[in-house]
Structures are given as C-alpha cells and as structure tokens.
Nucleic acid binder design. Structure first.
Length: 430
DNA sequence: TCTGGGGTCCTAGGACCC
DNA sequence: TCTGGGGTCCTAGGACCC
C-alpha cells in the first residue's frame, strides 16, 4: 500500500500581529474556530419543505424526482424505493442516518435500508445561496475566514477583542446566533488552539453544538477517539494502522515517531505523530487561487468507445464546452488539459497534455483532450468521462502580460517537443 | 443494484538544464 | 569521455476531503 500524505510539521511559526509584516511570538495560544453546518443540504431543503421536518429525508440521485405540488397545496415526494440509477446520497437528515443511511452511499443500497425515506433532488444553486449567507454572517464577526467548501469554514478568532477571557465561548455563541439569524439553520462549532483540534471538536456535540478545548484536555478528550476521526487519516491509512494494532488517537500518540516514519514514510509518519499529540501550526488561509477546474460525468450505462462512439463523442464535446464556460465565467485560462476515464471495473486512468500557451477555447480544449484520449486503451467499457483544466492563470494577468510585452519565457524544451498536430491557440500566443 | 462530482496535495520517474 | 548533483517541468497515479 502506498500512503504518502504530507502535512506541515514545522515548528510553530511566529504569529502575525498587526500589519507591515510585524511578527511577534505571542504567549497566548491561538484560538481557531471550526464551524460546520448541520446536515446542510437536508436542512436547507427542510426550510422550503417544512412538512418534512422529523421525517427520514435523503438528498441525492441527481435532478429527477422533483416533489409534486398538488392542487390542495400538499406535496407528493418520491421515496427511496422509487429510485433507479447510479446516484449516491449527498446528505441525509439525522432521522435517516438513524436508519443507517449515510453520505456517499449508493441510493439503490440506501433504498434497501430505508425504502420509505423521502428522496429529494440536489439543488446546488440554493445551497450556494445559503452558503454565502452563513459565511457573510461569520465574517461580520470574525473577518479572518478560511473557506473549506460549501458548508464549513475555519475562522481565526485570536485577535478579536476579549476573546481570550472565556476561551472563545461568547464569540462562539455569537457566531452560532448570527448564522441562525441569517439562514434559519443551526451549525456546530469547535474552538481550540488549532485547526486540527477544532475540526475534531465541531463534531463532538452535533447538531447545534459548541465545544471548547485546550491543549491540557487532549489526553482525556482526544486520545480515546478512533484514529480515523483525524482529518487526513482516511480508509487506507486506518486499515494500515489497525494492522499495526493502532486504533485510537491515543494508540497513535503512544507510538514511537521513528516507527511511524518507517511504516508511513518521512512526511506522513511525522505528521501522524504530531497530529496524534494535537499539534498543528497551519494558519487560517483567507485567500487561495484555484489549481484546477474540471467537469466529469458518469453514464447511465457503461459505454463502449466503438459501439457507442457517437454518444461518447457528443458527451466528450459537451464536457469540453462546459469546462470552457466555467473557465470563462471564473476568468481563468489553462495550460494543461487532462482527461479522466473510469472503466466498468471502477479503475481509473488519467492523461494530460501541456499546451504551448494558455487557452480557454472550447475547440482547443476539445482537441487537446482528444489527443489525450488517443493514448488510452479503449477496449473496456467506460462508466465515467471527465475533462480537467490545470495550470491555471487569470485571464486578466495574461492579458496584462501580453499588453506590456512582459517576456513570458517559453522554455526551449517545449518548442522542441511540439511536433504534433497544431493546436490552434486563439489566445495568449507567447 | 455497489460506488457522484468537484477539488487538493503528495510521490515518483524521466527529461532536460546548469 | 565519464561522472554527478541540484533544480524544474511534465506526466500518472493515488489518498483524501467536502
């Protein structure tokens, strides 16, 4: 097995205080909040379908199965047993979870456990709206916010006035109140000296929880937990740890660092040791640029490159068109186009190709992706096709560089290696 | 009737440059 | 001609997360 996940294990950095790059080693520990919305998608749906409150409800399975509005004002909902297809569950209410139905489970499998549970289609536009609402509410109180997806964030509370007086409790309560006022939804919050511990603690008292924890409580409250609960220890690492007799975070904390490094590699092994002791010096990152943008789709039935050539080709082109649209709407151009294929047996392969210049043109993306596809053996049936744009640059920056004739040094090697059929590059010729 | 879609980060080997 | 180390880029795969 191969587990190599790097985590920063550097010494605690000096904390930035004030502006002008002034660094001060503060005696007071940081106070970091992790805020996690409770059953987010399901809770958003309950706001518009309040008659479902208290019922086992799952969200997932694509766009079919919209609720039917009857003339008398009542609604008819699809049940899990009505579903056919390859969808998975994205969220379920706590009532559905009690029946064993969880995120990432196939809807068909969930239907066996809870055939009468209500099935609602996903509505990402709506979830994004509520996501903005709760994040705006949090930023009004604690401006140093790191986005961690649609339903959770970290916030650095360290510099907020008075926050250290009660270890963050009053700020935590204020955050929860503000989120509820803005959205009508509850969230769970963990407040501790770092992101790792806060992420663990936000789970402690779900839903609608608030958990504070200081470093001296780690042995009593963190060490009894399964190692799997640490963000960054997934199924593979959990299995390998279990094989070594390490099950809880405490087991991991008791293992010699040298032993973990031997078994898991230098980076991941050292990180496991640090994490088990509740040490984490990662900063709250308030701004980041995307690394890649992609589109992928799983077919309703597995397709064959020859037999279903026309269907596959149309889907391929559509994915490229959608990807080009995403790049344009977000203002990025890509220099590395890649594809992803998943076969009948669920094994995946990727291929990618670096272009001589950035592009966001659908036809250029389609051509590059087509060249990637030629490098794959297509005898097995496919269940998924995806297209990815990496090596992103902001269109604005590229245009500015072009206008000022900033030398964008093209490395000679690329030119030597560029014999193949010409990509037309509508934009950003170097 | 297994297993979505959109991401990040890490590793590792080979090419190529200095 | 041989030896070689460091650094970066490109590509492929995989673990993990929301």
């Amino acid at each position: 097995m191969h587990v190599q996940l790097c985590r920063s294990v550097e010494a605690q950095p000096a904390r930035k205080v004030g502006g002008a790059g002034e660094h001060v080693n503060n005696a007071a520990p940081r106070l970091i909040a992790h805020l996690d919305m409770d059953a987010f998608y399901a809770s958003v749906e309950l706001l518009r379908y309040p008659d479902l409150r208290g019922a086992a409800v799952v969200i997932g399975g694509g766009q079919r199965y919209q609720p039917l509005q009857r003339a008398d004002g009542s609604r008819a909902y699809a049940r899990l047993r009505d579903y056919t297809g390859r969808g998975v569950i994205t969220t379920s209410t706590y009532e559905a979870r009690a029946l064993g139905v969880h995120s990432a489970m196939g809807v068909m499998k969930a239907a066996k456990l809870a055939p009468d549970a209500v099935l609602l289609p996903v509505d990402f536009d709506q979830y994004r709206r509520y996501s903005k609402l709760f994040k705006t509410a949090v930023r009004a109180i604690a401006p140093q916010v790191e986005d961690r997806g649609i339903d959770e964030i970290y916030a650095d509370l360290s510099e907020l006035p008075g926050v250290h007086a009660d270890a963050g409790r009053s700020v935590g309560l204020a955050l929860k109140q503000a989120v509820h006022a803005a959205t009508g939804l509850t969230c769970s919050v963990g407040i501790t000296p770092n992101k790792l511990l806060s992420k663990l603690c936000s789970e402690f008292d779900k839903p609608d929880g608030l958990t504070l924890l200081s470093a001296d409580q780690i042995p009593a409250r963190i060490w009894p937990l399964p190692a799997r609960r640490i963000n960054g220890i997934g199924p593979k690492a959990t299995e390998k740890l279990a094989g070594l007799g390490l099950h809880t975070i405490g087991d991991l904390a008791g293992a010699a660092p040298q032993f973990l490094i031997e078994k898991f590699g230098k980076n991941y092994g050292a990180w496991l040791h640090e994490a088990a002791h509740g040490r984490d010096s990662r900063e709250v990152v308030t701004h980041s640029e995307p690394v890649s943008i992609s589109r992928e789709t799983t077919f309703e039935r597995d397709l064959h490159a020859v037999h279903d050539r026309a269907t596959l080709g149309a889907i391929f082109t559509e994915l490229c068109t959608e990807l080009a649209g995403d790049l344009a709407s977000k203002g990025y151009a890509s220099k590395t186009i890649g594809i992803k294929l998943r076969f009948q047996d669920f094994k995946s392969v990727t291929r990618d190709l670096t272009l001589p210049a950035h592009t966001l043109d659908a036809a250029a993306i389609r051509r590059a992706a087509g060249l990637c596809l030629k490098r794959v053996d297509l005898t097995r049936r496919l269940r998924l096709l995806g297209v990815r744009a990496g090596a992103l640059a902001r269109v604005q920056d590229l245009l500015a560089a072009q206008a000022t004739a900033t030398p964008v040094p093209p490395r000679a090697r690329h030119e030597v290696r560029e014999p193949r059929s010409g990509y037309s590059l509508p934009l950003f010729e170097p």
